[in-house]
Design a binder for these strands. Structure first.
Lengths: 136, 136
DNA sequence: TGAATATATGAAAATACTTTCAGAAATTAA
DNA sequence: TTAATTTCTGAAAGTATTTTCATATATTCA
């Protein structure tokens, strides 16, 4: 069982806007007051890695998969049945979760059982759940 | 200044797989042992709201915008210059951040200054930063 | 071994997201 | 008022992601 992922957007791309005239009616900005700022902000590579991680949680099917696995390890077909997804779609999603090490798996007979890799992710999404209740 | 957003994927869609034969070589699954599970998992609407939130953080430009605003409120054109994005792209991104109430803004003269709405988001992404350092 | 079951995979189709482009709207200054 | 500046907007273009479909691989059982 190999491994590969999607979520490429945040991995590689960069280097747009090579010429520094980013503003469309270009205006003479004195960037002096911005330089200090530029050194402190999230670097592009870090932002990309972080965004890749958040993107992983930015899909309701993946979140539901994680919420099921939080309670019980489960094989692919039961996951698919529980969440009303095709087994193929489930398999693709599990692959991306695997690639980011959010789940681990164990083969038993012809079934493959998936489980959460750790509880860090759960903590994270509980934190978001709270935030969402706050802003309502 | 109106408001509208993207990130539609997690908002509305559902109801795929209307027929219950989700498994491709359909197999007679006894769903009895899954019913308890289905009641406890994240509901689709909740998962969608949560995914929508994570998606918002799932873009490196948006994360960098937030990281800049964490230090200092800034107008659109300075944000654009700092992060090397076009002002139009910046404006579009700020709109989605506004729509999800992660940033607020204040108009002064012809400039519009954006700032973080609260520090909840920062806390969240610090938590992810830690996770990312762990798994390296 | 052959048939059935469970999962995985690549490619194409279906969707979704982000940026650019062209131009509108609002504000300021001359 | 006219010109310049700043931001916003809708639509199209460019890119990315997710699902489906067809098929491959692996395991079990008869």
């Amino acid at each position: 069982m190999g491994s590969s992922t999607s979520l490429k957007k945040n991995l590689v791309i960069s280097q747009k806007n090579q010429d520094n005239s980013t503003c469309h009616p270009p205006h003479p900005i004195e960037t002096g007051h911005l330089e200090g700022l530029q050194k402190q902000i999230l670097t592009v590579p870090k932002a990309q890695r972080m965004a890749e991680f958040f993107s992983l949680l930015g899909d309701s099917n993946r979140l539901r998969i994680l919420s099921v696995l939080a309670r019980k390890e489960l094989c692919v077909c039961d996951l698919a049945a529980t969440l009303d997804m095709s087994e193929s779609a489930m398999s693709h999603q599990l692959r991306t979760l695997r690639a980011m090490r959010l789940v681990s798996y164990q083969k038993r007979g012809r079934k493959v059982f998936y489980r959460l890799q750790d509880n860090h992710v759960l903590a994270l999404y509980q934190s978001v759940a709270e935030h969402l209740e706050e802003i309502d």
